[in-house]
Design a protein around this nucleic acid. Structure first.
Lengths: 282, 282
DNA sequence: TAAGTTTGTAGTAATAATACTACATAAAAA
DNA sequence: TTTTTATGTAGTATTATTACTACAAACTTA
């Protein structure tokens, strides 16, 4: 079943002025499914027959059908709010900024979610669960994400390491084996040092899981498994911030899955770590 | 205007069997506003007059009014999804886990947002913008958040430092002045080392901005400014992961605001940093 | 059992919503 | 200018929806 938006795109070229008016109203209205044809015609300054002509053109057999479809889609769309409306302005106070950051993140999550290939992610999970050693590589802000990842995965008990220094990264990479997994993080996908290190790691036989925000980049292409974050650029706030949150969500997802599919060994290790941390806090 | 739920609670005691059936159907249905009286009566195995009797009892003057109210409320409810429905299950595959993590984060953001006192956050912004030095203190996972914060704030040009080691933290704390700001991060609010260090920092005259998830804790009470994250505990996934994302959003918010209110000096510094990073990537 | 309450049936009125048509007019393209 | 296209008006048929009523049946409770 085609969505309202898709149907419009399909007929985009043949849409007439009043049809566009109707569509605008439907999009603008926050509860379009409650509108009767009459109300809609008044709102859009258009005659009722024009509405009928439109929904027929779009392939609906009745006005009801259009409304039901719309209600359906609104329920889903609600989560991925439009990016433009959530642009952060200089005059926004902290609470507004905070809300908008949340909205932008939600939008980015939806966009990213759409591109996820489950099989690939589950393959990554399997690789990590069975890996000899796990290395997290990143630089700058991506370096802190790498550390965050390492922190989490340390709990499953294997050898887990985060390294931000390119020289050390290189040393590790040169000594890897087929059992090792590298989780490399680079927002741009073109971080020179990481490219080099990933290259070395692959030469050593290690598998590379790449987390990045840009698809057509050197690093994205080198990846054995690619986890791609999507985000909408906004004027005031670099999308890097949003992407970083999505990247963390990726790591959380991987971790959650590794624990879920992991055998008793992993589950016991996680419990032990939990106890250890609790003890420290006391 | 009373909500549907409130109206029901009000009349709870006088509701009859068939009225309860109707309410159940309305609640169960995901698009109740699309139901006609006839459809609803069939679904709930109840006569149409019973429906009329019900909406009158609840104080609506027409069936339409009930539907509009319901549509309104559903639209709102949708954003703050119930925590239970988004619980991550062991059998959920990666894409589902990812989506649920996003939902949990959104819910946590809404809950946190509700408790934000703008004035306090803006006060924090002012303190940071005018601070002599800024110290980010955290341990474990909170340590990586501290580093993340430092990374961002380094760009505004002042002296910014993240420290995860308690001993170094202590040394810094002992040498602080009234111009210094500590941003301390502790999920639990009871991290022993951080308590000590915050204590020392306060003795030295520094201002302490505390980011934590638990309100009635030692650290929350010691804070000059408290930024409290809210999250719903779920069975499978520790709320720590969600809180951490919210904490990052807090830091993003502070940073965005500091740049916004900051004078030319800060803006120039941010631009310089941006150039520096771009250069490195090439 | 008797009184009261709840609910359904059935019939109906009033209205609103949808769908359709034919024609007229306005605007745009040839 | 002519033709085509887009749109609106007006009138109307059809159906769906809402709203109401009175009465009967079923069920509860005293």
């Amino acid at each position: 079943m085609l969505s309202f938006q898709e149907r419009i795109l399909q007929k985009e070229d043949s849409l007439t002025a009043s049809e566009i008016k109707i569509i605008d109203q439907l999009k603008k209205h926050d509860k379009p499914f409650l509108l009767s044809m009459n109300e809609l015609s008044l709102l859009s300054n258009v005659s009722e027959p024009s509405i009928i002509r439109l929904y027929r053109k779009l392939g609906y057999t009745s006005y009801q059908e259009l409304k039901v479809t719309l209600a359906q889609e609104l329920a889903n769309q609600h989560s991925n709010l439009a990016g433009n409306e959530t642009a952060i302005l200089e005059e926004d106070l902290a609470d507004t900024v905070f809300t908008k950051i949340g909205d932008q993140f939600s939008a980015a999550m939806s966009m990213t979610r759409e591109k996820i290939v489950v099989e690939e992610m589950e393959e990554a999970v399997k690789l990590i669960a069975e890996a000899g050693r796990i290395f997290f590589f990143g630089q700058g802000l991506s370096g802190t994400i790498a550390e965050d990842g390492a922190h989490k995965f340390m709990r499953i008990g294997g050898t887990v390491l985060a390294e931000k220094d390119p020289h050390y990264q290189a040393i590790y990479a040169s000594q890897m084996t087929e059992n090792d997994v590298v989780i490399a993080i680079s927002h741009s996908g073109e971080t020179v040092n990481i490219i080099e290190v990933v290259h070395m790691a692959k030469s050593s036989g290690a598998t590379v899981i790449m987390i990045t925000s840009n698809e057509n980049t050197t690093l994205a292409k080198m990846a054995d498994i690619l986890l791609l974050t999507q985000a909408q650029e906004t004027a005031t706030r670099s999308d890097a911030m949003t992407s970083r949150l999505v990247q963390l969500a990726f790591l959380d997802t991987l971790y959650t899955r590794v624990v879920a599919v992991g055998g008793d060994t992993i589950k016991k290790a996680v419990n032990k770590s939990r106890l250890a941390v609790t003890k420290m806090k006391k």
